[in-house]
């Protein structure tokens, strides 16, 4: 199964997709991140992508009080119980 961020990147249109991949690769490495810092808008994109990736990890998110699976399960149960669309 694709990770959430991989699915996001795959759905990003070209030419942004190639740029997103390159920026993310740099943002994940200390030297790459330092390079990105020289171009603030790119650094921001890199940090956003890296942050989204890290905090999408279910264990990390749960440690911060957010459980996406529980939110989805509650929603599904409510929809079934109340006949919602």
């Amino acid at each position: 199964m694709l990770r959430a961020l991989d699915e996001f990147i795959a759905a990003t249109p070209q030419p942004q997709r190639a740029g997103v991949r390159a920026v993310l690769a740099l943002a994940r490495r200390p030297r790459g991140a330092a390079l990105l810092d020289r171009v603030p808008p790119l650094a921001q994109v890199g940090r956003a992508l890296a942050g989204m990736d890290r905090y999408e990890d279910p264990a990390v998110a749960r440690s911060l009080g957010w459980d996406a699976d529980a939110v989805v399960a509650r929603g599904r149960a409510l929809r079934r119980a109340e006949g919602r669309p």
């Binding site: 959430a4 996001f8 795959a10 759905a11 990003t12 249109p13 989805v72």
Partner: peptide, 24 residues
């Protein structure tokens, strides 16, 4: 289908938005 909603922002950006929400 709401059964495919995962409450995961990057995944939902990919599925529910034009251009994964990256229209600029």
């Amino acid at each position: 289908d709401p059964d495919t909603f995962t409450a995961r922002p990057p995944q939902m950006l990919a599925r529910l938005y034009r251009e994964a929400g990256q229209t600029l």
